[in-house]
Design a protein around this nucleic acid. Structure first.
Lengths: 333, 333
DNA sequence: GTTTAGCCAGAGATCGTTCTCTCAGCCCAG
DNA sequence: CTGGGCTGAGAGAACGATCTCTGGCTAAAC
């Protein structure tokens, strides 16, 4: 039983395929009797327009690629990816566009550009955190528009679509929160220095501390992972055993840091207060639960989808939205 | 600048489009000079076959839907989904098929069936854990083949594709492991009784206990979530304060259970040994780390993809593969 | 009553690829 | 030298929806 086509519907309804198409496209200037007959026939056959034919004729694919590092997908870090992924997929779904998953962490460097040229998609959303520079490079001269979630390291065209959260403001929030809790001997476990968001968090942190009259505070670097957070905390503690507040610029690093603090006999938050960054699910499941700077990850995904769709539909929108971060108060600070 | 078509390539190469098509399809019976000219022209133009036209002509979409409950995606439980998702997406990618994400937890009940009828996909992989029965019902008379990851509650056709892990064997593994550790006063925190995998785990657990000469052991039920695990553990502990081993049939419930045990002053594993089920990432990040029965989640996704593709390509394969579970020894038992 | 305007249905063309059919040319054999 | 077989290139059709254009019919106006 082959899939019913528009011609089948038209035949049963006793009209031409043009008329059937008009009815199904919702056009009003069609005789009501005919329209009813078409509707009836379509329902009866379970007719659904063939998407390939529509695509070919219409020039639009009705699909958007979600380019994401699969290997990050199910790690705990992955809560970052899954949140953004979820937001983006929901946003696309709401826009009646199909999200197509494309793995970014694969050898075959030419496959993604080829896919972009195949006309199978109208645009792409790139969720690269630990980014793969050569891929970003391969994507900048894409034939279809791309929305970046998070700043890639490479330079983008001025009209590029970039969705980011307010990392600078988040750094300031963390500093203020610790200061408000009466902490003065503060340290930061920052991310890698070659990542823009990591640098912005440091900058916000320092600016706010300066404003508060705290002029120097130690800085150590981690890699946004749990173990790197533990290692960084150990270094920090060795150099500044008397600190009473730590800002770890990811929840995962905060989790690693807290374990080291507890193992060293420090109570969290009474001896040392800890603030994380991200607000992924581990923040609520650890003990103590983590006070953290929330990035609206799902919103970032959703905004990426909405912005990209708006651009595709020719609407004039803000191409570099920055979503605000906020402090989520829990037990650790 | 419109996308280059086959005609453009043919024109530059000085051949007909049929010849160009033959070359690009890798057919050998083409004059080598012409073939070289075509290759050259295609490369020069950055030509990539239009997927819509190919789809329309070929009848195949080259895409598979991944139907998944988005709302589960970024919860901790979600590590189940993301692992399967990752495996499935990788498997499809390897098969040169595009994975299209389709949210299962949406109101519009007719949208997914309509999508399946649109010809945009050749098949679907359904990852429903906390399942949405009406959706499963809507999917059973799908025009395209469907691979189910995990047994749905509804009855499926005998030739349905179902990928599952050995829940029965896993239950037995848990029982044996606790018994081997010298535990005899055992209890189980099972899943909901109306879920097939949950029942199978109980059956395996009981059979193995019987074989070991342990004839009755208490059973309580949870909902596979952390909080339900805590609540179930509290009930279990109240009724059987002297137990020394617990099998929680999900890692999340095990995590909740361990917290309750610790709060009640029981050391894990010295006073009470705990075994989980799944081996998702929380198992390695909790303290103590969790001994658990591993489900090969990523493999299940991959096998789902491979089986579905094999069926689509007309190959004769096992349609109900059962992947074996294994014990992962860590600290909690 | 006739002419014109307007509305609406249907025929045709189009999107780009792939498959089939036809035909031209060449080689070998009779 | 001619006919048959084979190789390989090109023309045409098909996939199915949608858009344009044309033509017929009706209604209204003069």
């Amino acid at each position: 039983m082959p899939r019913p086509t528009l011609v089948d519907v038209a035949k049963i309804a006793g009209v031409s395929r043009a008329t059937a198409a008009r009815v199904l496209a919702g056009e009003t200037n069609v005789d009501v009797t005919m329209a009813a007959a078409v509707e009836q026939a379509a329902k009866e056959l379970g007719y659904e327009a063939n998407s390939a034919a529509r695509m070919l004729r219409g020039g639009r694919a009705g699909a958007i690629a979600l380019i994401i590092a699969f290997n990050e997908l199910d790690s705990l870090t992955g809560t970052f990816f899954t949140s953004v992924l979820k937001g983006a997929a929901k946003g696309l779904y709401a826009g009646e566009v199909q999200p197509i998953l494309v793995p970014a962490d694969h050898d075959d460097g030419d496959r993604i550009p080829r896919f972009l040229r195949s006309g199978a998609i109208d645009g792409a959303i790139v969720i690269l955190q630990h980014e793969i520079t050569h891929l970003a490079q391969a994507l900048i001269d894409s034939p279809v528009p791309i929305a970046w979630v998070g700043q890639p390291r490479i330079a983008l065209a001025p009209d590029a679509i970039v969705i980011d959260s307010d990392n600078y403001g988040g750094g300031r929030l963390a500093a203020r929160a610790l200061a408000d809790a009466g902490r003065r001997r503060l340290g930061i476990i920052a991310g890698p220095n070659d990542m823009e968001p990591a640098r912005e968090r440091i900058r916000g942190w320092r600016d706010e501390l300066a404003r508060l009259g705290i002029d120097d505070s130690p800085i150590v670097h981690g890699e946004f992972t749990l173990v790197s957070g533990s290692a960084a905390m150990a270094r920090l503690l060795k150099r500044y055993p008397d600190l009473d507040g730590v800002f770890a610029s990811s929840d995962l690093m905060a989790s690693g840091a807290i374990r080291v603090l507890q193992a060293a006999g420090r109570q969290v938050p009474s001896d040392v207060a800890v603030i994380g960054f991200d607000d992924v699910s581990i923040a609520t499941t650890m003990d103590p639960t983590l006070t953290t700077v929330r990035q609206p990850l799902e919103d970032m995904g959703r905004v990426a989808a909405e912005t990209l769709l708006a651009v595709l539909r020719g609407r004039d929108v803000e191409r570099r939205p920055i979503l605000s971060t906020s402090l989520v108060q829990r037990e650790s600070a």
